[in-house]
Write a protein that binds this DNA or RNA. Structure first.
Length: 580
RNA sequence: CGGGGAGUAGCGCAGUCCGGUUAGCGCGCAGCGUUCGGGACGCUGAGGUCGGAGGUUCAAAUCCUCUCUCCCCGACCA
């Protein structure tokens, strides 16, 4: 491609309201342009990256037996009503009516459609297992898009779906995807880990996320460097330190004026926060009043709480609702309340003689003990894991890091097959729901994440595997310098002829402009043709990641560039740690 | 949805508080000339419903009301 005619110029500065690094670079390098909040056009240079990412995805999906197909982006609402998600999902799903006044939705994800297909196409155990996938647009009207391409509203996702006879088959499909995803992200040059995750609104029985580290990530991961434990903070566990055994003491009400927070209370009584109980009140989507209690030094993890309660959503209770069950905001405890579902963290069960609210303003109870002073309806792990807490596997201190979720795999089980009647007959003629899994990778987010991890002060450092071009070719000097221009033109033709992808800077610009743009766009090799080196019959080749250049005779340029590209490819492959 | 910030030429900004020539500057863009190994220089030029609507006023980028959009934090989120 000749840069003189490239659609989409580079920018010296990014728009001022763009803050995320990958967003700035992807705009400055001319990869994408914003259209609206969370909506982007992909320019030709960026599209080449996307296509390479998608090619890798297709290769690895095909390698595990995935069948590439295509499902629609507009769905009849009735299908979504069948699984209940039409009402379950809020305004983040775009809805409209067609000319016949039929309710329609924009594809939010494709479980419904693929399961609808499965119920028609799959009838027999002889047809299973199956993996199908597509790369298709999703629209999610996020409450707030952010981070450039990291969280957008319209995006392309590779989503695949597995259909199996039983749990064992699903496990096989799940593991296949796990390995395929490792290969995809490694080949794209990402640094990532796999963590346990919340199944969220997908439902199902298990989920793992592929998390690429970046300070701009939206997720917090808790890791143990000692044993390798890693989970998303949404579900991360930790070992609660056991208080020393002590006798239960008689409960006693004390006046504690103006102690509506745990810290104020602990300061007032001169005790550590771990000797207090913290009460938080929610209304569950099912209509239950949820009275959650954790030890005072811990925080509630709403995702864990929601999962423990099997509630689809939790909203904070109002002051009136709290009074309605006999509790008092700021001075609440489960002692004496009625009409509430009481769930306590393991830490509360195991800690004797805690200070808890007296359910009247200005008073707390000393020496409250679960089981003696109140009964919990549920004891569960509902406290949020934080950096420094003990690892649940080995007890060493946990570390927290930010990461971007680049892929997610789910065991759906029969959540959708039962709802939609996707069944097969076994060898005995008995009908069973198929076991399903769903597996997603966003290609645009993957592009942004690679930039987040690979850049320097001058621009992007693309891995060869997904770089827009292999080579940035620069002609140095005036376009009136016929000798240089004709050598550069010839080299461009020769490289292109030999299958090397070249971005040829043939603009009539000064060298500095071209060097800077080559660095910004970040193709792995830079080749410069100048009268200075031409005088020695040479051209210059420089790797984007190296400060040093090589000089080779013009006549050997193509083979030298070929050789260097092969070297880079070999190095990248070695870095993935993958075999073959 | 709550909190904060911003909309003036393709990009970056000044001007707005305190209303008053023809709305400016840098980069970029077009033409001519000089220059050519890390974002050159000179001259000339094109490019603007000052986000939109309504209002106040002799007069509005500037004041008032409403509204739209974008960004950031939070809530939210496969």
């Amino acid at each position: 491609m000749r840069m003189s005619h490239l659609f989409g110029r580079t920018l010296r500065a990014a728009p001022s309201d763009v803050e995320i690094l990958s967003h700035q670079l992807s705009i400055r390098a001319g990869l994408v342009r914003p259209l609206g909040s969370g909506i982007f056009s992909v320019l030709p240079t960026g599209w080449r990256v996307i296509q390479k990412i998608e090619k890798i995805i297709r290769e690895e999906m095909n390698a595990i037996g995935g069948q590439d197909m295509m499902m629609p982006v507009v769905h009849p609402a009735d299908l979504w009503r069948e699984t209940g998600r039409y009402d379950l999902i809020g305004p983040e799903m775009a809805r409209f009516k067609d000319r016949g006044d039929r309710d329609m939705v924009l594809a939010f994800t494709h479980e419904e459609v693929v399961t609808d297909l499965a119920r028609h196409e799959i009838n027999s155990y002889r047809q299973l297992p199956q993996i199908v996938y597509h790369l298709q647009t999703k629209f999610r009207d996020e409450p707030r898009s952010r981070g450039g391409l990291i969280r957008v509203r319209e995006f392309t996702m590779k989503d695949s779906y597995s259909f199996d006879l039983d749990e064992a088959g699903l496990e096989v499909a799940y593991q296949k995807h796990w390995r395929a995803y490792q290969r995809i992200f490694s080949r794209a040059g990402l640094y990532y880990i796999v963590v346990g995750a919340d199944v969220g609104m997908m439902g199902g029985t298990a989920s793992h996320e592929f998390m690429a580290f970046s300070p701009n990530g939206e997720d917090t991961i808790l890791l143990c460097d000692a044993c390798g434990y890693a989970e998303n903070q949404e579900v991360a566990r930790f070992t609660r330190d056991r208080p020393t055994a002590e006798q239960m003491l008689p409960a006693e009400e004390v006046e504690t004026p103006n102690t509506t927070t745990i810290q104020l209370l602990a300061d007032y009584l001169k005790i550590p926060t771990s000797r207090t109980a913290k009460a938080v009140f929610y209304m569950g989507a099912s209509g239950r009043f949820i009275f959650a209690v954790v030890r005072g030094d811990l925080g509630i993890n709403e995702t864990k709480l929601r999962n423990a309660l099997n509630e689809s959503a939790l909203t904070p209770a109002t002051v009136d609702q709290i009074r309605g069950i006999g509790a008092e905001a700021g001075y609440g405890s489960p002692v004496g309340v009625k009409g509430a579902f009481v769930v306590i963290d393991e830490s509360v069960r195991d800690s004797p003689n805690l200070v808890a609210g007296a359910n009247r303003p200005g008073y707390h109870l000393l020496n409250v003990n679960a089981g003696r002073d109140f009964e919990a309806d549920l004891v569960a792990d509902i406290a949020s894991a934080e950096a420094g807490y003990p690892c649940p596997e080995c007890g060493e201190s946990l570390r927290a890091d930010r990461a971007i979720e680049v892929g997610n795999i789910f065991k759906l089980g029969t959540r959708y097959s039962e709802a939609l009647g996707a069944t097969y007959l076994d060898a005995e003629g008995i009908e069973h729901p198929v076991l399903m899994g769903s597996y997603g990778i966003g290609s645009g987010r993957l592009l942004a994440t690679v930039i987040e991890q690979r850049y320097d002060e001058n621009g992007i450092l693309w891995p060869l595997s997904i770089a827009p071009y292999h080579v940035s070719l620069i002609a140095i000097g005036s376009n009136n310098d016929e000798e240089t221009m004709s050598a550069a033109n010839q080299l461009y033709a020769d490289l292109t002829q030999s299958g090397i992808e070249v971005l040829y800077d043939d603009r009539d610009d000064r060298p500095g402009v071209k060097f800077n743009d080559a660095d910004l766009i970040g193709n792995p090799l830079r080749v410069a043709v100048s009268s200075r080196n031409l005088a020695n019959g040479q051209i210059e080749i420089k790797r984007r990641t190296s400060p040093d250049a090589e000089f080779v005779p013009l006549g050997e340029a193509v083979s030298a560039i070929r050789r260097m590209l092969d070297d880079i490819a070999a190095e990248e492959w070695a870095a993935t740690g993958l075999d073959q």
